[in-house]
Design a protein around this nucleic acid. Structure first.
Lengths: 208, 208, 208, 208
DNA sequence: AATGAATGAGTTTTCATTCAT
DNA sequence: CATGAATGAAAACTCATTCAT
């Protein structure tokens, strides 16, 4: 790395750090107030910038919001990919997926609330793809793992993605409800919960 | 019924009919735009009344919204009660519940979208009770039916309401996703879907 | 009086009685809320008529208000006239005027507040004459009584109406302040107060 | 003063100047139309700002109004204090008070009209204290000066604040009426008027 | 880059007045 | 005459976005 590049890199790094400050502030505010009631004033105050400064980093409130949601969806897709790619039985892989997804929600309770609140805006294109389609992408990842078992006739003959959506829904519901019940997720035990859901789901799917 | 009463009754009926016009218009707009982006202008236009007229029937946008959500929650609770009270095996009763709930969502696609969108406003008190608590009430109805089986050790020992929430979530997710995928529910087959979910859920819950 | 006229007269009397009901209700509401915040809804409710019915008796809110203010100004002018026309010394006549004016305010505390509140609308023409000019008419009545004494050089050479306005102002201020201090006028003693003001005014006006 | 501070001070000064522009515009509009009929549209237009800009300086119409009334009451109280604190006989001090108060009203004709119009809103708390109580504060200042003379038995034994209110009322009435008669105060002569009122009041109060 | 003042379109709500029954 | 539903013109307030400094 040349010395001449260093200052540029530092500047670049600083810029990115500031950008991230804004994103973090926005996440909190969006999670707490929802998209519509979140104000740039509040986000700017929390990020300790002037309101106008936000526009040096983001084109609009919408852009800022999409970036946050998009990053979350990327994370969730990655979790699914990694869990499915790893070794082990199908149950083990789904257990990993469920555990890690719920851990992610526990660690990022605000993000989870954003997604829930903005089912609201589900038609909204995030990046270029509608949120729902992004979720379908995740379901597909789980689905293609299921497909092999379906073909082996060990689990019910259902369209794999549909089946995956059932599981995905169970996982998300589980944390979501806790969050909305107002108690927070501090005592939520992802691993225990994951076991329960995996057991129920796979026993339920077994061919009788 | 005396002749003298007739006009009063007619007036009363007409008033209620108009009120319902407004509610119907509002349901559509709330479902399409969400609470915050729904404007009274649009609701009034759709109901074919002047904006001010809405205020002869409802105190505020909030009131109108709450009435809609509250009525839906009443309906959903009623469906659960009736399904559980009727005779038949536990599976049969859950089948009825699932079928009828999904039929309700199919018939009232807009209402379902409102509930989903306004998980957003879940903390909001509707009537006097937070939405989440109303949902818990429904889960309790299903839960107390499950309790007996749990006691008989034929299904897994889990807290009954928690278990019921799993089922409730499966049912709602099922229609919700279809609705958000944009294809509409016209080809959705509640009975078939209900069978699938009941089978999966109960087989999943069986004590191994 | 012919028999044929009787029913008409009864109808007429009933109509006037209803009209008066409205006026009375309006007085209370205007006094309590002020012109702008008084609503026809509230007036109608207090008068136990439907809102639309008010328009069978008055052309507009404004008309109704003017009638009330105008009647009050008529009363106040009458009090001044009668007090000045009666016999006795100038002091005695002014004492009567002050006593009766303050008694009127005590009896009609709401009216007094209306006048005070709607100094606000003083430019407003009531009937055809601006309120301020009506008050000047009252001052003139007092003034022409003062004029004779001024000519006799027993009291200061000032323009009589101006001098009268000083007294008129003293009298109105006296009750007005009590009313706005929120204690009500129930313990207000017009006669005692009148003596005090008359003494101060006339001693103050004496030629040194 | 450091050079670095200069820009800050200039900004600050400009901000205050703009704020004052708004206050001045509001004073005129409130005086002309009264609180309720004054619109922010009109105030903004007169101040040559957009409507929204007002909200960068004031929280609400109410706040703006209160600031104006409160400042006026501060001024009036200050005038009373200064007049009473200065040397000279009691008459001389009251002469100063009356002259300066009437000069203030002459210079700020709009303010005086606001106070009069909004006797209307007298119950309203301005700052933290009801208007009426603020006026009583002024009367108290005059009253404590009167108290000494009352104790010396040179003027009538009346409660000093009550007596002061009589004088205060005479002074305000004097300018107020002129203003409402529509001729304006351009030819009003505070000093001459003050002499007249002081002479009348003190001669009237002398112990016979 | 950072600032924060200025903007103005958009929204809910109120209420005098009208009018069909 | 009595009713009360319908109307629509205001009006206060919010806030994303722009832009001069």
């Amino acid at each position: 790395m040349s010395l001449a590049q260093q200052p540029l890199l530092r500047k670049e790094r600083e810029r990115l750090a500031k950008r991230q400050e804004i994103v973090n502030a926005a996440r909190q505010v969006f999670a707490q107030k929802g998209y519509d009631h979140a104000t740039l004033d509040e986000i700017a105050a929390k990020a300790e910038f002037a309101k106008g400064t936000l526009y040096n980093y983001f084109d609009s409130k919408e852009t800022l919001f999409r970036e946050i949601v998009s990053a979350m969806l990327d994370d969730l897709a990655r979790i699914a990919e990694v869990a499915m790619e790893g070794g082990g039985s199908l149950r083990e892989r789904f257990l990993r997926y469920a555990t890690q997804t719920m851990e992610y929600h526990k660690k990022n309770e605000d993000l989870q609330r954003i997604l829930a609140r903005e089912l609201n805006r589900m038609q909204l294109e995030v990046g270029l793809v509608p949120i729902m389609q992004r979720l379908r992408g995740i379901a597909d990842i789980l689905g293609s793992a299921l497909k092999k078992e379906i073909n082996k006739r060990t689990i019910v003959r259902e369209e794999p993605t549909e089946l995956a959506f059932v599981f995905l829904g169970m996982v998300h519901n589980r944390t979501l409800r806790r969050s909305f019940e107002g108690k927070g997720l501090s005592e939520f035990e992802p691993e225990r919960e994951a076991h329960f859901l995996v057991q129920l789901f796979f026993q339920g799917c077994e061919v009788a």
